[in-house]
Design a binder for these strands. Sequence first.
RNA 1: CGGGGAGUAGCGCAGCCAGGCAGCGCGCCUGCUUUGGGAGCAGGAGGCCGGGGGUUCAAAUCCCCCCUCCCCGACCA
Length: 659
Amino acid sequence: MPSFKRVAPIQTRRSPRSRRSEPSTPERSASAPPRLTTACAVHETPVACDLVRTTRLLLHTLRDDPADAETQGHALLVRACFVRRLASGIYTYLPLGLRVLAKIEQIVREELDAAGMQEMLMPALSPIELWDESGRSALFGQDALPAFLIDGRGGRFVLGPTHEEVVTVTVGSQIDSYRQLPVTLYQIQSKFRDEARPRFGLLRTRELMMCDAYSFDVDAPGMHRSYDEAVAAYLRIFDRIGLTVTPVQARSGAIGGDVNHEFMVTSVIGEDKFVKCPNCHYASNIEAAEAGEAAEAGEAAEAGEAAEAGEVGSSTDPPKDGAPAHSLDAPSMKTCHTPGCTTIDSLVAFFTRSGTDRGAGVDVSPALTEITPADTLKCVAMMTAQSEPVVVAVPGNREARVPEGWRLFQEADFADNELFVRGFIGPVGLAEKGVRIVADWSLRRRSGPWVTGANREDHHVLGVIRDRDFSIAEWGSYATVQDGDPCPRCGSPLALQSSVEAAHTFQLGTTYSSKMSGGSFLREDGSRAPFYMGCYGIGISRLMAVIAEENHDEKGLLWPEAVAPFQVHLLSIGAERSEETRVAADNVYVSLKDAGAQVLYDDRELSAGIKFADSDLLGIPMRVVVGKKGVSRGVLEWRSRRTGLSGEVGLDAPGAVLV
RNA sequence: CGGGGAGUAGCGCAGCCAGGCAGCGCGCCUGCUUUGGGAGCAGGAGGCCGGGGGUUCAAAUCCCCCCUCCCCGACCA
């Protein structure tokens, strides 16, 4: 991992090139720096605060947004000189950015330490044999686990995308007995992922800073306790950083395990989405989210129970007769030549064209000349976890959801199941050939008529009526949940939120410990058992991006106190023309530092406008101005970047700005 | 991986269609003036026009190949 993370206190630099002499007061006494006691001081950071004269700081702000910036937060981080892109998805943390990163890390350390975890550091590079052992090397190169592989002299190595294997063998070799358990370890480490598409600046990158913790317990109940403790610590971290977070049900993906939660920060970037019930506590990532059946009066309880009890949110009770009475009297279905209409959009366009343009011999009832996607039945072929081909029916205006463990049909599947005609799948006649047809709740209240696939190349059928022309084997939540869909537990309308996944916690169980050598310990009765593990990841660099995204205005960044690179931005105005002003500003700088504040001192000989603009851009919470206007009256001016509140305090007691 | 767009000075861009001296703004350097919200004047430095090949008397410009970056999709912490 990069050495920059181990930030040792930097010695005060007194460069001979410094343009002016340092103030006579010592910048730092030999004794330990005073602990912050001011209201705005949350804690100390491990970063030395000595390099704080802007004339000595690597700071080159940009007036224009960089061309490749996708979001305001990203643009501001680049303009304000916090980060710089080296290649797609690869960023350098410049001095200011590193300070923010270090503050976030420190909050994470404090909370995890307080939760009884121990920090360690595993290597970023690991031998591929470890990944062969867990079986995950088979996932390399796939999107699920896009690891970088390195061919070295000593064999093949993996630039770690995550560390379950490494931690399992590491801890396994140290722990032999139940007496040594439970234990939870964590590290803050660079992770590497060969992303298909890095984007949103620091939000999705190839190299990222992450804190990952791993718990080891003797049994499942112990794992649950460790998990709950880790989740509680994570919530405290978000609370301190000032981000609103919602833990949601999610999918475990390539990490594995049963229970897992994503920590979603509501954000306008909306890289991810989740749904939340305003009534009960149901919250889920959009990928894992299920909806209940839209409830008529009195049906809510039943729908909720069904979903809660159902494995994939399905039930097998017979369909209710929700069909309008006239449906059964509707004209019988007709097959129609629909060349090339393999998508809902093209199908709708086909039928919405003028009647003469529909191809010869097509008899379309007048009622169908104007159809919408909602009038079509979208049928998607999927393979269940048991490798059973099924047809999933959803309304044409909604996306099919792939239940966990299932997958969409691939080329080979279509080749193996000639019943399924890609692009023209429909429910009619398939049940008779042994294909199970499942449907989304939202289809239950309408029997038809539907436009749907004819299971024949370039053909669809019109006027299809459920329970007359086909039947549904199972009802469930098979459509991607939309805003306002009923909660699967209580039936209340779900709210859809755009968000960023900031952390992810997993109950791994024995997924890794049962496969890795040394992944077991001796029980009290002398028998050998695998560890019950949990793993907990929180994206440090991603948090920095989210904070910037959620804390800025048109002028620049607005760092929350807890993670701001500095607490005070001291600006001298006109000091190059006034020795009195310069001395006053220097003295204020020293006083604030002696009071324990982290101060960035803009001592550059630049016009006031530039210094004010840069100050707004950097977003340090408190701005303090020492200029001739105030100095003549013996005062300095302060202003809160966030609230705009301002005032004056005497130059003889600048520490007053800290309370 | 599919579709679209773009690579010209540190940053943002024009020039390309219609081939003919490498440009503009910001930033940077020097000097003078100015001085509390991105100052003015004068002078200056800085480019393999992404790379390679081709066409041509002549290529930033036209053609071919490659690389990189960005966007949409797929996928994903």
